[in-house]
Design a protein around this nucleic acid. Structure first.
Lengths: 97, 97
DNA sequence: CCACCTGTGAAAATCCTGTGAACGCAGGCG
DNA sequence: CGCCTGCGTTCACAGGATTTTCACAGGTGG
């Protein structure tokens, strides 16, 4: 998948072979997104996969973690735009930046 | 449906497999139109499906969103004419441009 | 030509998202 | 235990995006 490799079984995400320093939640979120490339995933879906259960109203956990993930991906892959926002719906992972 | 694929359950409309960037309203309107191909739908019907309830007199929401939808479809599928105007009545979606 | 309708840009109102920060918790360690 | 560190959760708020509304040019049909 381009320069990014996600290996759930190894609890790792690699960029050009170098492991990213992601926390458990960040990795879970990345794995969940990357398992459904080009698919628009709602916050509810993402929350349910990563946190389990349903988010409470006004829960911003998904947003906050997307933000942190983007920040770390930006650092490792400057100029890439892997996670797209779909306003009012959720997020979409696009392997090609 | 030609090069356009509408997937309401996935909150997505694809052209040649690539997701269009539609807002929620735009997508709802496209879905509603595309669910009744070749059928002339009145503004009232469209409004009721997308916005719910009845439009107030002189409400132009449907027109405005048809315009935006056409614009985005034109950009993704130059030369296509998927949404036809029926004067004094409403709009009709025609899968073959 | 007239009355009415539609297309579209733009302003105003509303809603949503990105992000920094605060807080609590749990584990490691002296 | 007391302190420190890293992580997860929640909150606040500025800025961005969407929705609604309005205005007006241009089209349509009689």
């Amino acid at each position: 998948m381009g320069r990014l490799e996600v290996r759930p079984e190894e609890h790792a995400a690699l960029v050009d072979g170098r492991p990213l320093c992601l926390t458990v939640r960040e990795l879970q979120l990345l794995v969940t997104l990357a398992e459904h490339p080009q698919r628009i995933m709602t916050r509810e879906e993402l929350f349910s996969e990563v946190w389990g259960g349903r988010p409470r109203r006004d829960d911003r956990s998904v947003d906050v973690y997307v933000s942190r993930l983007r920040s770390k991906l930006r650092e490792a892959l400057p100029g890439s735009r892997l996670i797209h926002t779909h306003n009012g719906i959720g997020y979409r992972f696009s392997p090609d930046g």
